[in-house]
Amino acid sequence: MKSEIQLAFENCKKEKRPALITYTVASDPNKKKSLEILKSLAKYADILELGFPHSTPIGDGGQIQTSSHRAIKNGFKMKDAFQIVKSFKKTEKNKPVILMGYYNMIFQYGENKFLIDCKKSGVSGIICVDLPWPENKIFAKKCKKKSIVFVQLLAPTTTKERMKKIIRDSDSMNYLISILGTTGSKLKVSPKKILENYNKIKRINPKKNLVIGFGITDSTISSFKSASGLVVGSLLCKTITNSLKMRINPATKLLKTVYNLKKKII
């Protein structure tokens, strides 16, 4: 059986556009609101990444750090992430959700229990920022057994030889980090250069869906239309922060943001 993630990509391919993938943080700004936000985003996004916030996120820039700290301060516990996904899936059955976060949280929860709860709540995929290949081989296998897509990350520093090995061991979706930097960095390299690199990697195995993330905003997204999928995170976290400052409902504001993003890639 094909995974929901696979189906989402196929659907986008039919429509000749990249999948729009959003990233927000569970319990940002609180548990209830973050569910409402997911539902807003689901109106235009194809795949939803939900971050489980960590206190010490070494791969994240300012915007996602702010969201993470806000969520933790507002009482986030790991079980909340699963409850949010479960409630979401009740109304949005076919919309795939990918959980994303740092390994210590999975390690403390217990890999096996984590995967059982992913399955129970309807999580389709996992991205673990600091569990690179080959250290992730055992965990990735466990995911595969449970039909959960373990998304491998590729970076501008990843050598060609290493790329091939990672892609060989990967599931149906991989994630290319566009530039040297944390999330929310400015695109230091031209979209053309990034796409050149993207195409080279894509050719290693054209069947695998390769998405691009980091530095994708409303002003850069239209340059990457040829990719299988595009991830937008920091822009959304920043929108939540600004909405809170202006005392407007972040879910309403994000609906507009995600509509705008979608418009630029169709």
Partner: peptide
């Protein structure tokens, strides 16, 4: 896995840092 005693140390880093 660059771990002492099989459980301490390692390289739990973002992919970008693997090459450096």
């Amino acid at each position: 896995n660059c771990m002492w005693g099989g459980k301490f140390g390692g390289n739990f880093v973002p992919e970008t840092l693997k090459k450096p």
